[in-house]
């Protein structure tokens, strides 16, 4: 049996039929085709599936799609505005913030949330903010630099 849900994703309203057991990550990827949200460990450890729910980052492998009914979800596809990359995305470009790219969408969404709430974070605060997300390529150095780059852009803007 399915349930009808209405979810606003990146500002656009979607109505769909889902099984109650459908996880938010699969709803986004398989039903809406938004494959920028990655799907990793399935145990809320790795954080690659991080999206925002009403503006707050959550791990979408451990949220049911039905729980997002009448709520807003933000994914990496929504970071770019009017053909212009978000400063966080540009930071990852400038500072080589990714190698394989698997953790990148979740990292960027958390970084965006961090800078929205703390425009000038310390290195420790950046590392703490992304501590629920695993990167197996960069050793985190360049991710931290990317977020710092974005913070500088926004502070001086």
């Amino acid at each position: 049996m399915t349930t009808r849900i209405t979810v606003t994703v990146n500002g656009e309203e979607h109505t769909a039929e889902v099984e109650p057991r459908t996880l938010l990550v699969h709803f986004l990827r398989d039903q809406l085709g938004l494959t920028g949200t990655h799907w990793g460990c399935d145990t809320s450890n790795c954080g690659v599936c991080t999206v925002t729910l009403d503006g707050t980052p959550v791990k979408s492998c451990t949220v049911l799609a039905v729980m997002a009914h009448n709520h807003s979800v933000g994914t990496v596809e929504g970071l770019e505005r009017d053909g212009k990359l978000d400063p966080v995305q540009q930071g990852f470009v400038e500072c080589h913030g990714l190698q394989c790219g698997f953790c990148t969408p979740g990292m960027m969404l958390t970084a965006r949330w961090l800078l929205d709430n703390n425009p000038d974070p310390s290195e420790t605060e950046i590392r703490e903010a992304i501590s629920g997300q695993s990167c197996r390529c960069t050793g985190y150095e360049n991710i931290v630099r990317s977020v710092q780059w974005a913070a500088r852009q926004e502070v001086t803007r």
């Binding site: 809320s44 954080g47 991080t50 729910l53 707050t56 980052p57 959550v58 791990k59 451990t62 949220v63 958390t110 703490e128 903010a129 501590s131 629920g132 997300q133």
Partner: peptide, 9 residues
């Protein structure tokens, strides 16, 4: 307890 993202939920 866990990590900041898990603590959000």
């Amino acid at each position: 307890i866990a990590d900041p993202i898990v603590r959000n939920r």
